[in-house]
């Protein structure tokens, strides 16, 4: 074919090609996700923002008024301010689940674009890294905008609330990594509906997002402790209330951080293994 490049550095020249750095490989793959987002972002904005904003209005404002009237708020602050970090983390979780179920299945199985990526000089680790970078940025952006909206309604009392953005990303990744693992091992999409309805909804409702876990029956409380959402919310709430390290709870923040990180690391390890098994058969 004509018009081939003159530069000997070009990767179009026959012979051994210049290897790609990890950054180049990731960036090339990120380009795919961004191109796809250009087509789909409108629908996403509606579905991903509407839910948290509706919950903000219903819980924070509607029920909040009832709570404040009866109990004078929760943990010494108006209920709206108490619940905002919970909603931020719960929506980060839902966003994470949305990104790591059907879309992953599409790329694995339906359009097999992951396989197309792996026909290029990339490896499974690059494929996962690129996808997770895109998901993380989406969640960072989404939670940032939501925190700003909540602030307009008087739901945020401290600039420390901005820490909610990285915490939301970490919490989301604590779901994304294990769910990618699950998605790579499943062949049946009905499992996703089950996860959504029978796992994610109860997690959202019973992980200290809308009321302190101490309100739960005693036997249910340890269940909350193992969920990433509870750790994310516990980590974020003191920051939203103006005291990120929450001295009242000692090294609690470090434990939350460690648990969330463990979810990401173990989930990432499993996802990598499962992806290799599935895509490099």
């Amino acid at each position: 074919m004509s018009a081939l490049p003159e530069s000997p550095r070009s990767r179009l020249v026959h012979g051994e090609r210049r290897p790609l750095s990890a950054v180049e490989r990731t960036w090339g793959l990120v380009g795919f996700h961004l191109t796809l987002l250009r087509r789909t972002w409108r629908g996403l904005v509606v579905s991903r923002f509407l839910t948290p904003v509706l919950f903000l209005a219903a819980m924070g404002i509607g029920i909040g008024r009832l709570v404040d009237r009866s109990s004078g708020g929760v943990a010494g602050v108006p209920y709206l301010q108490y619940v905002v970090p919970g909603i931020v983390m719960a929506s980060a979780m839902q966003w994470a689940v949305g990104e790591s179920t059907w879309p992953v299945m599409t790329l694995i199985k339906w359009n097999q674009m992951y396989a197309a990526m792996l026909a290029a000089p990339t490896r499974v680790a690059d494929v996962l890294r690129a996808h997770w970078v895109v998901v993380s940025f989406g969640i960072a952006w989404g939670s940032g905008v939501f925190i700003a909206i909540a602030a307009l309604f008087g739901g945020v009392r401290s600039w420390w609330a901005l820490l909610g953005v990285p915490i939301a990303v970490l919490t989301a990744m604590a779901f994304v990594a294990p769910l990618f693992w699950f998605a790579a091992r499943t062949d049946n999409e009905e499992g996703f509906t089950t996860i959504f309805r029978l796992v994610i909804t109860p997690l959202m409702l019973f992980s200290g997002t809308f009321f302190p876990v101490s309100q739960l029956p005693i036997w249910l409380q340890p269940v909350a402790w193992v969920t990433p959402l509870w750790h994310g919310t516990e980590l974020a709430r003191p920051a939203f209330l103006g005291d990120p390290l929450d001295p009242g709870h000692g090294a609690g923040w470090a434990i939350h951080l460690a648990v969330l990180t463990a979810y990401v690391v173990v989930g990432g390890w499993g996802a990598h293994r499962a992806f290799r098994a599935r895509l490099e058969a």
Partner: peptide, 14 residues
């Protein structure tokens, strides 16, 4: 075509 080319580390112009 574009996204696939980028997987190979080709420049945008290429």
């Amino acid at each position: 075509l574009w996204v696939y080319g980028r997987f190979f580390g080709l420049t945008r112009a290429e």
